Simulated assay, not measured.
Amino acid sequence: MTDPVEAAAEAIIGLYTRHADDWARMRDGTLNADEGPHLQRFAAALPEGAEVLDLGCGSGRPIVHWLIGQGFRLTGVDASPGLIARCRAAFPEHEWRLDDMRGLDLGRRFHGVLAWFSSFHLTAEAQAAMAAVYARHLRPGGVLMFVGGPGRGVSMGTWMGEPLYHASQAPTEYRAGLEQAGLIDIEEVALKPGADDSARVWTARRGMSD
């Protein structure tokens, strides 16, 4: 018998594919109060006109839209055809790739890599492998930001009446993986300041030597 938690982990792409229109309606607005300060930190660390890779870009709103408004050049990757189609229609001057972030290798490097509430839908083991994906897409000095949980484990939710899978490594595991991938200046802060059970926002930078 298939484990329901494992099944939910495998079903994430299908879930967002079936409900692409619902997701787009839910997020067709402005940055929320929790995410805004962190994304502003990310943008402030990038050079003018930076090239940014958004892993799990969704429909492009509100985050891609906001980043483009900061003058950045976006490349977005998402595994949902419906969500990528929305990005292409809304922002045709930027680049959109239908692909799975796991094992991704675009053969290019960016000033910034963002995985905002996207890689946390992967299993902890798949997230461990993402450190190498992040690193190989960063230019020397490039900035990474992604979201994890407060501790190792699985958290199940419900969205559109279906199971919604989230997982996290332990903070020590995230840090060790990033260090092993050659990333430096690693920081972990709570999404909601002062909340011990809050999601964690991780930032790191690729060293200047290659």
Rank of each mutant, 00 (worst) to 15 (best):
M1C: 08
M1F: 14
D3S: 13
P4K: 03
V5M: 04
V5Q: 13
A9D: 03
E10F: 05
E10H: 13
E10L: 15
A11C: 02
I12E: 11
I12W: 03
W23C: 03
D28S: 14
E35G: 05
E35V: 08
P37K: 10
H38P: 12
L39D: 05
Q40F: 06
F42A: 07
A44K: 08
P47W: 11
P47G: 11
A50M: 01
G56A: 12
G56P: 03
P62G: 10
V64L: 07
W66F: 13
L67V: 02
F72P: 00
T75L: 05
T75E: 06
G76L: 04
G76V: 02
V77T: 06
R86Q: 13
C87D: 04
A90C: 09
A90V: 09
F91D: 01
H94N: 07
W96G: 06
R97E: 12
R97W: 10
R97S: 03
D99N: 06
M101L: 15
L104K: 10
D105P: 09
R108T: 06
R109G: 01
V113W: 11
V113I: 09
A115I: 00
H121N: 04
Q127G: 09
A132S: 13
Y134M: 03
P140T: 10
G142P: 14
V143R: 15
L144S: 00
P150Y: 07
S155Q: 13
T158M: 10
M160T: 12
E162F: 03
Y165T: 03
A167I: 04
S168I: 06
A170K: 04
P171T: 02
Y174F: 15
R175C: 06
L178S: 04
E179N: 04
E179A: 12
A181D: 04
A181L: 12
A181N: 11
A181P: 11
I186F: 04
A190T: 13
L191Y: 10
A195K: 15
A195W: 14
D196N: 05
A199H: 15
R200P: 07
R200E: 00
V201P: 11
W202N: 00
R205D: 01
R205N: 05
R206N: 00
S209G: 09
